[in-house]
């Protein structure tokens, strides 16, 4: 499993939902230990791509290899094994609404390993604190939290198994700039210390500049280009140009790129 250059390797992926073709012969590779951003207009299938990679949506054709294994060829038990090695943060957290935040995080641990109770709750509390939630948030139900807090709780749940890959669907959307920056910092810290691979769908240009090693631009049912951001912004495609040089794009200072 080590030594493989690409931890995620998507080749010739075609996805259809009903009669709509979302992706057509799409290629995407993610290297081990990098933070890859995915950008694209609304409705271009960023989330669908993420869900296809983690096996929630069956592709019409093409190959998806994660950890060197073909996702669509796995049996149910193999998929569960692989599921322990990645963590997913869904757009609105997707926390179990009948469990408290702490129980949400603990449930993942309990399902996967048999550990003593106090250790489980300590590990859950650790992860909850790591994502920047106050300790008392652990006893609250998801419906009692704000959107931003739910998102962080979802991240705590995604991180609790110390996964090798983390999939993040718009992690900073709806967060205030301070919280968003803290989240970016956390993701980058974990990537550095644990060698995490991160796939992040985002519209947050600050995040893209701050933490992404490479960015994949999704348009016209394909990945147009995957490149470090400073190369990507020069890519001569009208959509890329509109995205990165639009009115909303503030001029990013050069030092913003090497925030560590």
């Amino acid at each position: 499993m080590l030594g493989e250059e690409y931890i995620i390797d998507v080749q010739g992926l075609t996805t259809r939902l009903g009669e709509y073709t979302i992706h057509e012969r799409l290629n995407l590779t993610v290297r081990r230990g990098e933070i890859l951003g995915i950008v694209g207009g609304s409705g271009t299938g960023k989330s669908v791509l993420m869900k296809t990679i983690i096996g929630l949506i069956k592709p019409s054709s093409g190959h998806i290899r994660v950890f060197g294994q073909d996702i669509s060829a796995l049996s149910e038990s193999e998929r569960q094994m692989i599921g322990k090695r990645w963590g997913v943060l869904f757009q609105d957290g997707a926390l179990f609404s009948s469990l408290t935040v702490a129980q949400n995080v603990e449930a993942v641990l309990r399902e996967a390993y048999s550990l003593p109770r106090d250790l489980v709750s300590e590990l859950a509390a650790l992860k909850i604190k790591m994502v920047g939630l106050p300790p008392e948030a652990g006893d609250k139900f998801p419906s009692e939290l704000s959107g931003g807090m739910r998102k962080r709780a979802g991240l705590a749940r995604a991180l609790v198994l110390d996964p090798e890959i983390v999939f993040l669907d718009e992690p900073t959307a709806g967060l205030d700039p301070i919280a968003a920056a803290a989240l970016d910092e956390l993701i980058q810290y974990l990537q550095k210390t644990l060698g995490l691979t991160v796939l992040i769908v985002t519209h947050d240009l600050d995040s893209l500049y701050a933490i992404c090693d490479r960015v994949a631009a999704l348009a016209e049912k394909q990945v147009l280009v995957t490149a470090p951001l400073d190369e990507l912004v020069k890519y001569p495609h009208p959509w890329v140009q509109a995205y990165f040089h639009g009115v909303r794009t503030r001029e990013q200072e050069p030092q913003a790129m090497d925030v560590n």
Partner: peptide, 19 residues
């Protein structure tokens, strides 16, 4: 050093549960 850094990090955030 990496392991030490991780330990320091965990030390900052973790808390032992009182019985």
């Amino acid at each position: 050093p990496e392991h030490q850094a991780l330990l320091t990090y965990v030390q900052e955030y973790g808390q032992q549960q009182r019985k």
